[in-house]
Design a protein around this nucleic acid. Structure first.
Lengths: 209, 209, 209, 209
DNA sequence: TATGAATGAGTATTCATTCAT
DNA sequence: GATGAATGAATACTCATTCAT
C-alpha cells in the first residue's frame, strides 16, 4: 500500500548495488522492529528473523545495533527537509504554503512511518556522537519551518504576536501525534488529516467573531 | 521547585502509611528512571540505587517491573481527568474553558513530568492486560476533551466544520510535544506555553481577514 | 598435597568472611582454568562449572573476567616479595642467601603454581591499567633481587664483572622454566630443583680449574 | 634489520613457488599476530588484514587456524637443532661449544622472535596430534643439548655432580626469558646477552675461592 | 522489611569456517 | 587465487526474579 522505503544514500557502504539492496532490506526490518517494540525491546534476533537471516550475519552489513538505529533515524528525518525546501522556494500564497508543509510532513509520516516512529521514540537511545548528528538534521528541519513562518509573518500574512518557535513545536506535535498510536486509523484518509490539521493550525478552533 | 509527586491512591497495598510512603518513593524513582532511559533501558538496579535499596528488596513492595510501570503510567494519566471535570462543570465562556484545559494539561505535564513522559514513551511496553487499564483511563480523558469541544460546538462557539476528534489529537499532540525534549527549556515559563498554545489553538496562525 | 591457595587480602570486597571464602573459591577456580587453557582459551563457563555455579552468578562476585585475571596475577606475584625481604634482612653468608632466594621462588611456584603460570602466560591479556599495577609488583620483585646481588657484589662475594640485571633475568628464567611444562615432573622433588638451580647459578657448569 | 623469516619447507603445499611465497607471507603474518596477542586472542581477520587479504581467502592457503599455528611453531623450533648439530660435530674446547650453543639459541630467538614466542606461549593451544609433532621436535632439541653436556661431562670438562637434565632446563629458561618480554630491550646487543648468559652458565655467580 | 546470593534466560557481538561466483 | 556473503556456535555480560536468613 505505502512505500515505506528508504530513498536516500548515506555513508554506510558504497559497495555494489546488491549489497546496498541487502542493507536496505535490513534497515527496513530494523525500522519495523524498532517502531513496534522500541530500541531496547528489540533484539538483533528480531531483526534478523524479519530479514530471514542468521543473527550474527547482520554484522556483516552493520557494525552494531546502534549504527542501525542511527541509520533508521537519519533516513526518517532526512526526507522532511528536501520537500520543505521546495515549498519554501515555490511561489504560493501563505495559506497554501502552510497547507503544503502539513501535507509534506504527514505524507512523510505515512510513507516512512516506521522510520519516523523510531526517530520519535528511540532516538534517545543513540550514543552521544550519533545522536548529535541526528539532532543536527532535525534542528535543521525545525529551523527551516520557523524560517517559513517568520517570512510569512514579515509579509503580514501571519499574526504579528505569534511566537514562531512555539508554533513550530505545535505544528510538529500535532502532526507527530498522528504517528504515536501503534496502528493508524485506516478509516481516516491522509487528506483528511492534512485538511483538518492545516485548517486548525491556520484558523484555530473558534468561530470568527 | 515543582511537586512531581504522586498523589492518588491505587489498589497497590493498603498497608500502613509507612509502607505507602516507601511505595511512593519507589514509584517516584521508577518514574524518574523510566523517563530518562525508557522501560527496557532501565534496570531494577537503577531504580533500587535511586531509592538507596538493594535490587531484590524492591520485590517486597512491587510484584514486578511491569507493575511498577503500570502504576507510574496510571498516576501520570489519572491526574488529568479530575482537573478537566471541574473545568467542564464550571460556568465559563468557551474561550476561557479551552484556555483552562490547556493550563490543566500543561500544569500536569510540569508537575508529573517523569510520570507523563513514561506514559507517553513507555506505555507500549506494558503487557496487554495492564495496558488496557491504562488505555481506558487515557481514552476517558480524550473523550471528555472531545465532549467539551462538542458541547462548545453545539453552543455555536466553535466552528461547525471542526472534526473534534482530530482537534483533540491536535490539542494533545501540541501539549505533549513540550514533554518530548529530555529537559524542558527553563527560560520559557509555563504561562508562556499555555498562552501560546491556547491562542494558537483558538485563533490559528493567520491574520483575521 | 600442596596448598595452592591465595593467602593475601586485596581490595576486592571487604564483605563478610562467607563472601570472602566464596571469592577465594572463585579465583582458585579461575587460576586453575587460566593456567590450563590460557585466558582467551578459558570461558567464564569453565570457571563457573569448576565452582559449581551458574555462569552469570560469577558476576555477583567479580565485575569482569579481566578483574578475575588481575586478581589471580596479583596473588601470584605478591607472595614472592615478602619472602625475599626476610632473606635480605637475615644475617647469612652470600651463598646461603642466594640458595634461600631460589628456595623462596621455587616454593612459591610449587604452592601457587596455577596463579604463577597464569601470571607468566596470561598477564599480557590484562587491559593496560590493570596490567600496570601487576607490572609494578613484578618489577618490585626484580629490583629487590637485583639489589640483593648488588649488595653481595659490593661485599666482594659475587664476581665483579657480573651484570646483575641479566643475572636476575637468568635467575627468573631458570626458575620459571620449571613452571612452563603443563604438569611438573613428580619424580623430581622440590629440593632437587632448589639444589640444582642454586648450585648452577652459584658455581656454574665448568669444573673449577 | 633482522631476517625474522621462515626458511624451511614443510609438507604444506608442494605447489609452485609463487604459492609458496604467499604461504610464507601468511605464516609470517600469523607468527606476528600470535606472538603479539596469543592464539585465542588473534582472529583470522587479524592475520588476513596483515597480509592484505580477505578473511575467507586464507583458507585457500591453509586448512585451518590450528594448522597455521602448528606451522609457525614448527618453523620456530626447527631452526635450533640444525645449528646445534654443527656445534656438536665441530672440534672445539668445551667452553667454546657451550658459548656457541648460547649464541645459536639466542640468534634464533632474535631472527625468529615471533615464531618462537608463539611456540613458547601458544603451543598449548594445538590439538593433541599436532602438538605431539611439535613436542617431538622440541624434545629432540633438548636431548641433543643434554647429550652435549653429558659428553663434556664424560670428558671431564663439566662438573661431575651436575644434573644435566636440569641444566638443560636452566639453559633454556635463561635464554627464553629474554623472549618473554613483549619488546626486547634494544639497548642491549645480542652479543651482550650471549656473553653474560654463557659466562653465568659456565662459571656461576660466585667468586672463585 | 530488607539483604545477599543465586538462577536461568537473554543479548549484542565475535569468529572460524564454508562456498558460490 | 581471491571475494563477498553467510552460517552456527560460542562468549562475556545483564537482568528480572526468587528466596533463605
Amino acid at each position: 500500500m505505502a512505500p515505506r522505503r528508504a530513498t536516500t544514500t548515506s555513508k554506510l557502504s558504497q559497495r555494489g548495488s546488491r549489497a546496498q539492496a541487502r542493507q536496505r532490506e535490513i534497515i527496513d526490518a530494523a525500522a519495523a522492529v524498532f517502531s513496534e517494540k522500541g530500541y531496547h525491546g528489540s533484539s538483533t534476533r528480531d531483526i534478523a528473523d524479519r530479514v530471514g537471516m542468521q543473527q550474527g550475519s547482520l554484522y556483516y552489513h552493520f557494525p552494531s545495533k546502534d549504527a542501525a538505529l542511527a541509520e533508521v533515524c537519519r533516513v526518517g528525518v532526512e526526507g522532511f527537509v528536501a520537500g520543505l525546501e521546495t515549498i519554501i522556494a515555490d511561489e504560493q500564497p501563505a495559506e497554501a504554503k502552510i497547507r503544503a508543509a502539513f501535507a509534506n510532513h504527514l505524507k512523510g509520516l505515512h510513507d516512512r512511518r516506521d522510520y519516523i516512529r523510531t526517530f520519535l521514540f528511540s532516538r534517545h537511545n543513540l550514543p552521544r556522537d550519533l545522536r548529535q548528528e541526528i539532532s543536527r538534521l532535525s534542528r535543521l528541519y525545525e529551523s527551516r519551518l520557523e524560517a517559513l513562518l517568520l517570512s510569512l509573518q514579515a509579509d503580514g500574512a501571519v499574526r504579528n504576536d505569534l511566537d514562531c518557535r512555539l508554533a513550530v513545536l505545535g505544528f510538529l506535535g500535532m502532526c507527530n501525534a498522528a504517528a504515536a498510536s501503534h496502528r493508524p486509523d485506516p478509516k481516516i484518509p491522509l487528506d483528511a488529516y492534512v485538511e483538518s490539521f492545516a485548517t486548525l493550525f491556520l484558523s484555530g478552533v473558534m468561530l470568527k467573531s
